Computed example of a mutant assay.
Amino acid sequence: MRDPSRRPRFLLVQAFTLPPGSPNRYRDDGGTKEANLMNHAAVAPLLADIDWDLHPGPIAPHGDWPVETREEFAVAGVARLPIVRQACESGQYDAIVLLGGGDPGYPEAREIGRRHRIPVTANAHAQMHVAMTLGNRFSIIDISETHNAHMAELVVRYRMTQGLASIRNIDFPLPRPAHRGRPTLRGEAEAHARGEPSGMLEAAEAAALAALEEDGAEVILLGCSGAFWLQGPLQARLAERGWDVPVLEGYRCAIELARLMVNLGVDASGITFPGDPPAHRRRKRIA
């Protein structure tokens, strides 16, 4: 049981770190945890009253590019589990937040956290659950065909198919060898910050409008954490068009869900994630 007089302490774990010199970086890392946390300006208010550390994640085990395929998500997820296990065993943290829009290693990390009674949250899972408290159906604005396929599988895994209106592809993928010579999301956030036009923002606005007008979406989610910067301008553009709908982004949802679990003093169900060995052995389980 956490001492209520002590500030909670969170560990934020990035999905992976690209090796030094990788040509596929799409942002510059800084020397502080604040500079290294991609969405720090937006999440800072949520972290103001807690102590937190940032783990850079494992050096990308699949190559020197961001993850997008099922194989890459699986490999990155396995590589992240020892970090989660070590953090849980250290006894230093009240919650662990897994960063990265595709949630690599999340169910397994949650099982580890449950053994130590430490809540573990992740971006896509948190976004979908928050979305279903705000509306009846959500659409995911995502970055590429391959990433879309992974997100669709997460919707099924998280039992959110009844809430999904659509996954809309804006086709601004992550910089990686497979997309060499075509537009990616590299530099789009910086261009928008400089007041320059952004094709990615234009595509996201068109996709969100189609989701609202054609698919029946009531909440908009951003599928890739690399698209975090779209949340504010996309929310504003939809409001200008008269659409009063939430636009959610993964880092904030995952951090806020972790805060909620810590404040409630709960973590994952011991039936959903049985112990080893389990305390009870039920004769029947319904999927």
Score class of each variant (00 low, 15 high):
53 D>R: 08
53 D>Y: 07
53 D>N: 10
53 D>P: 02
54 L>Y: 00
55 H>Y: 08
55 H>G: 11
55 H>R: 09
55 H>F: 08
57 G>T: 05
58 P>C: 00
59 I>W: 08
61 P>E: 01
62 H>N: 00
62 H>G: 00
65 W>I: 02
65 W>Q: 06
66 P>E: 02
66 P>L: 01
66 P>R: 03
68 E>P: 04
68 E>G: 06
70 R>H: 12
74 A>H: 12
75 V>S: 05
75 V>N: 02
76 A>W: 07
79 A>H: 00
82 P>S: 07
82 P>Q: 00
82 P>R: 05
82 P>A: 09
83 I>H: 06
85 R>L: 15
85 R>H: 13
87 A>M: 03
88 C>K: 04
88 C>N: 01
89 E>M: 14
90 S>Q: 04
90 S>L: 05
92 Q>L: 14
92 Q>P: 04
92 Q>C: 14
94 D>K: 10
95 A>H: 01
97 V>C: 01
98 L>D: 00
98 L>M: 10
100 G>Y: 00
100 G>S: 04
100 G>E: 00
100 G>A: 02
102 G>R: 05
104 P>M: 02
105 G>K: 08
105 G>E: 03
106 Y>F: 07
107 P>C: 11
108 E>D: 12
108 E>S: 13
110 R>Q: 10
111 E>T: 13
113 G>R: 03
113 G>Y: 05
113 G>A: 04
114 R>T: 08
115 R>N: 12
116 H>K: 09
116 H>F: 15
117 R>G: 07
117 R>L: 11
117 R>W: 03
117 R>Q: 11
119 P>F: 03
119 P>I: 03
119 P>V: 01
120 V>H: 03
121 T>M: 06
122 A>W: 00
122 A>V: 06
124 A>S: 05
124 A>F: 07
125 H>N: 12
125 H>W: 13
126 A>V: 06
127 Q>L: 04
127 Q>H: 02
128 M>G: 00
129 H>Y: 09
131 A>S: 10
131 A>E: 05
132 M>L: 13
132 M>V: 07
133 T>L: 08
134 L>P: 01
134 L>I: 02
135 G>E: 04
135 G>Q: 01
136 N>P: 05
136 N>K: 13
138 F>K: 04
139 S>M: 11
140 I>K: 08
141 I>F: 09
141 I>D: 09
144 S>E: 11
145 E>F: 11
147 H>R: 12
148 N>L: 12
148 N>V: 13
149 A>S: 11
150 H>Q: 14
151 M>I: 15
154 L>C: 07
154 L>D: 02
155 V>S: 11
156 V>A: 15
157 R>Q: 14
159 R>P: 10
159 R>V: 13
159 R>C: 14
159 R>T: 14
160 M>A: 15
160 M>W: 06
161 T>Y: 13
161 T>K: 15
161 T>R: 15
162 Q>I: 13
163 G>Y: 09
164 L>S: 12
166 S>M: 11
166 S>I: 11
166 S>T: 13
167 I>H: 08
168 R>Q: 14
168 R>G: 10
168 R>K: 15
169 N>Q: 09
170 I>A: 00
170 I>V: 13
171 D>H: 15
